[in-house]
Design a binder for these strands. Sequence first.
DNA 1: CAGGTC
DNA 2: ACTGG
Length: 278
Amino acid sequence: MQLKLTVPFNLDLSVSCGQSFRWRKINGFWYAPVGDSVWKVKQEGDTLFYEGASDADIIRYFGLDIPLDDILQDIDRDELIHSAVASCRGLRLHRQPPFECLISYICATCANIPGIQLRVENLAKMYGRELKSDGMTFYTFPNPEDLACESPENVRLCKVGYRDKYICGAAAYAAENPQWAADIFSMSYADAKRELTSLSGVGQKVADCVLLFAFEKYEAVPIDVWMERIFRTRYLGSEKKLSYEKAAGYAREHFGRYAGYAQEYLFAEREILAKKGE
DNA sequence: CAGGTC
DNA sequence: ACTGG
């Protein structure tokens, strides 16, 4: 199947910027298990080629229905974001499956991106279902029930370390409240964040990632070590470390209602920014 | 020493 | 405090 893009989109950047953890580039195609099938996607200019997904699946997952130009125009409020927008235009936030996103970011604390990918892959291998595509083996992300019935000791065999009990707790929550994702979708950002942070192992940063990457809450501005550094040195010129509220609050005030999108563009450019010095 | 949390 | 790049 193929789709002619009439809107800006950069597949490579979108799947490799660190928002999702299961995409792999093999022989020019990006592969990932999404839901119950393996998706195979390639972009050539303004054409997307894909297998394993419907047009509607692709549009929804990659957020091709979101008015990116309007958002980028709205957040383009200073020189730094202007250059990030210029060099990363086409980067789109995905609509990730909520449960997978939640567990993935619980796995993301105190770990680098390769480490997160490894843990998520281990969980899928152990508790997901096997899928074949082009002779390769992939694993679906487990359902809440698949993890909820496991002991932390077993889950720990996936090399998740101290996060074992957080994963089991979050799985039990999702399994016992099948409507949890629908509820969070319908909540305001503040209520949704309160709900997610009530889970053990889910603090402000993890909650904001899940709200931004799975629930379309663009007010969510995840503040990791990189974002704290950027807001401290580039925006606020502060000597000491910024509190989470101060950094995120400043971002929302400065960038407006799509501050989460601005965060992702700045994050995508973090390596360039890091090279310019502290 | 790494996309934090309890 | 787990774990590994």
